[in-house]
Computed example of a mutant assay.
Amino acid sequence: MRTRDLAQAALLVAIAMILRTLTPPLVLGMKPDVTLAMMFIILIIKRDIKLGFLVALSTGLFTALTTTFPGGQVANIVDKLLTFIIVYNLIPVITKFASKRIAAGITTAVGTIISGSLFLTIASLLVSLPAPFVVLFTTVVLPAAVINTVTAVVLFSVVNFAMDIEYNQAENKAV
Rank of each mutant, 00 (worst) to 15 (best):
L43D: 01
I45L: 11
I45C: 03
K46V: 04
D48K: 06
D48F: 14
D48R: 01
I49Q: 02
I49V: 13
I49F: 11
K50W: 05
K50P: 00
K50E: 04
L51K: 05
G52I: 04
F53A: 11
L54I: 14
L54D: 00
L54S: 10
L54A: 13
V55Y: 03
A56H: 00
A56P: 06
A56W: 01
A56Y: 02
A56L: 04
L57K: 09
S58N: 12
S58E: 07
G60L: 06
G60N: 02
T67M: 14
T67Q: 14
T67P: 14
T67C: 14
F69K: 01
F69A: 13
F69P: 01
P70T: 07
P70D: 04
G71F: 06
G71M: 11
G72C: 08
V74T: 13
A75H: 04
A75G: 08
N76Q: 12
N76R: 06
I77V: 15
I77D: 07
V78I: 12
V78G: 03
V78R: 01
D79A: 14
D79L: 06
K80M: 11
K80C: 05
L81A: 06
L82K: 05
T83Q: 12
T83R: 05
T83P: 11
T83K: 08
I85A: 14
I86M: 05
V87W: 00
Y88Q: 03
L90V: 11
I91G: 00
V93S: 04
V93D: 00
I94K: 03
I94N: 03
I94A: 03
I94Q: 01
K96P: 11
K96L: 13
F97E: 10
F97P: 07
A98R: 06
A98K: 02
S99N: 15
K100I: 02
R101V: 10
I102M: 11
A103K: 00
A104W: 00
G105A: 08
G105P: 11
I106G: 09
T107I: 13
T107Q: 08
T108S: 08
V110Y: 12
V110P: 14
S115T: 09
G116V: 08
S117L: 09
S117P: 04
L118I: 05
L118H: 09
L118Y: 09
F119T: 04
L120V: 05
I122P: 01
A123Y: 01
S124F: 07
S124G: 13
L125T: 07
L126E: 06
L126Q: 03
S128N: 14
S128W: 03
L129G: 08
L129F: 09
A131E: 10
A131G: 07
F133Q: 07
V135K: 13
F137C: 12
T138H: 09
T139D: 04
T139V: 03
V140Q: 03
V140H: 13
V141M: 07
L142C: 08
P143N: 12
A144V: 01
A144S: 15
A144D: 06
V146G: 02
I147H: 02
I147P: 02
I147T: 04
N148M: 09
N148G: 14
T149N: 08
V150F: 12
T151I: 10
A152F: 12
V153G: 12
L155Y: 05
L155V: 08
F156R: 00
V158Q: 04
V158W: 04
V159R: 00
V159N: 01
V159E: 00
A162V: 11
M163Y: 15
M163S: 13
D164V: 11
